[in-house]
Design a protein around this nucleic acid. Structure first.
Lengths: 338, 338
DNA sequence: TTGAAAGCGCTAACAT
DNA sequence: ATGTTAGCGCTTTCAA
């Protein structure tokens, strides 16, 4: 890369001091009009660009926010990031994005990288509710605000933005039961994600409320991806467990489950409901018969920024938890009221 | 944020010079063993982290690569980024990702931001084949290598990684015609994307080869998104153009088209083929009856890195163009050999 | 094997 | 309104 032009070069060429150049470039008021325009014109002509590294280094402020997400397959996190970027950009922040790929080690590496890059805050959806707790704590101790969203961790005293997982899962179960399902199996998430437990509890409690038998056999714990859903469904089929509805942890695993059934040429009867929490736009559109609970991704992004700004103002401020209402979208032949 | 500990602090505390600390921290050989371990232990205890800004500033090397993509809805770019990140990470590079959202102005802003951040190279899939050409040129003139992939621009003398759009589109048309379709309509892409023209040409040439009538009416130019596909389909239906196959520019627009037909309760006959270029994993799985041309995303990522490294070594080296073979995946009731 | 010193590009306090 | 100067954290000569 060619050596970029600096304020020193400009100062030298125009016979002014570099402070004047610096002031002109930053639109400080106390620069004579002609001098300023001379400087700006010259800078533009020579293609001057601020050296962010020198500036950040000097100012000890980076204006960079780190975003850590476990995956980018579903559109949820993509939409989240898109919105976050546009909000933060308007506030003069840039972002570094890291995709953990559901791997705590990658997450850890990326967090350390972000620390080196002196990010001023981190928005994170954790990929594991135990493994990196020490790192999270360390970063917070160093004064970097961490805001958790979606996949939060209860035992951490940090600002959080979550959805009403339990309640909405419970409603979904109620809806399934009320529409006549008696054999609802649960394709649960992995134990290392906190949301898994909340949804499992909702599954169990809803059955209990309606005096339906709760059977541990009817729950299979799986991962969050398409392949995980396929495998879980395979396991269910092997065990020959009858079902008239499948309550899935994620939309991807739901799609995997359905795909597996299709591969078996098992035609899914109209009255077998497949539903899941955390719907994505894409599959909702593609997949007209799957009831989903859709997370309010824009709202979540907005609150994340709000909580982040609070912490940036005052690191010792309170750690608010915002719980957002999710929306159940029924796309099922046997519709009931929400 | 608390003031992070620096090598000066360490040097002062341990009574050595900061050069020694710097050397120890960077594993330079000429540091006495005991001193080194003392320094490392102290650094670890105090939670020392390199200040990347000071280092980059001093070394004039950032080890950051910018990635610019037009969207992240389809999994293509997500997969691309994931793979790029893992390869570059292994080579000691980090990445800044920007999503243009199909908007050349946003793309421009982000490119300028990347310039300020002194990225050492940029991988870009352009969202418009004209609008930002000046910016691209300027960055290249400044010595920042730009590697174009997927949505490339012919008139720019830069390294490129593209797929054999024309050929594969032609094959797809041949396949449709050979399987008996006579009324193939084309839901084309927008004119500002270069690939649009290649696919349109393939559409026309294939019809010509088989002496089928080519009718401008049978092409509707649309955007790349789901909604664009819906609108285009609506327009086709309004014009009452009969069809037995739809050749779509993107998978998203294909999904939109199909969704629109479904909303009309227009049941798509088995022998109406919907097919598209640039398939994503998700919808291929969800959507068993859509023939797609799948882009070799991993290979594309690998070549991008290869071309980037070449340019990084020698900015004046040749501008290679790599053309990758795409794969037609027939998911149609009336199968034929590829 | 170590230390002293210069300097990367920029900003801000201070002086003029 | 402008210039002078010091210094941010680090690496890298050069000297010891």
């Amino acid at each position: 890369m060619k050596n970029p032009i600096t304020i020193n070069d400009i100062a030298f060429e125009l016979g002014v001091s570099k402070s004047t150049v610096s002031r002109a470039l930053r639109n400080e008021p106390n620069v004579k009009k002609e001098v300023r325009s001379k400087i700006l014109a010259f800078a533009k002509e020579k293609g001057y660009t601020r050296n962010e590294y020198a500036i950040n280094f000097r100012n000890k402020s980076t204006k960079i926010i780190g975003i850590v997400v476990p995956e980018m397959i579903t559109s949820f996190y993509v939409n989240f990031i898109t919105r976050i970027q546009s909000i933060l950009y308007a506030k003069g922040f840039h972002t570094i994005i890291s995709i953990s790929n559901e791997n705590p080690d990658i997450e850890k590496d990326n967090l350390l990288m972000m620390e080196s890059y002196r990010v001023e805050g981190i928005l994170i959806s954790a990929c594991h509710n135990k493994k990196n707790i020490d790192i999270y704590r360390r970063l917070i101790d160093k004064g970097i605000p961490l805001i958790f969203f979606d996949r939060t961790i209860d035992e951490l005293a940090v600002p959080k933005v979550k959805i009403d997982d339990y309640i909405k899962s419970f409603f979904m179960m109620e809806y399934l039961i009320r529409s006549g399902r008696k054999q609802i199996i649960h394709l649960a998430g992995p134990s290392y994600i906190q949301n898994t437990l909340e949804r499992k509890n909702a599954y169990r409690d809803a059955l209990e409320k309606f005096h339906l038998p709760f059977n541990q056999e009817n729950i299979i714990e799986s991962g969050v991806n398409f392949e995980d859903g396929e495998k879980a469904m395979e396991a269910f089929m092997k065990k020959q467990i009858p079902f008239d509805a499948i309550f899935c942890f994620t939309e991807m695993s739901a799609l995997g489950a359905k795909s597996f059934l299709q591969k078996l040429h098992y035609s899914i009867p109209e009255d077998v409901a497949i539903c899941c929490v955390s719907g994505t736009v894409l599959s909702s559109l593609v997949y007209p018969t799957m009831t989903v609970i859709e997370q309010p991704v824009e709202l979540m992004a907005d609150y994340c920024v709000e909580l982040l700004m609070e912490k940036l103002d005052n690191m010792d401020g309170p750690n608010r938890t915002v719980v957002l209402e999710a929306k159940m979208i029924i796309r099922d032949s046997t519709k009931v009221d929400e």
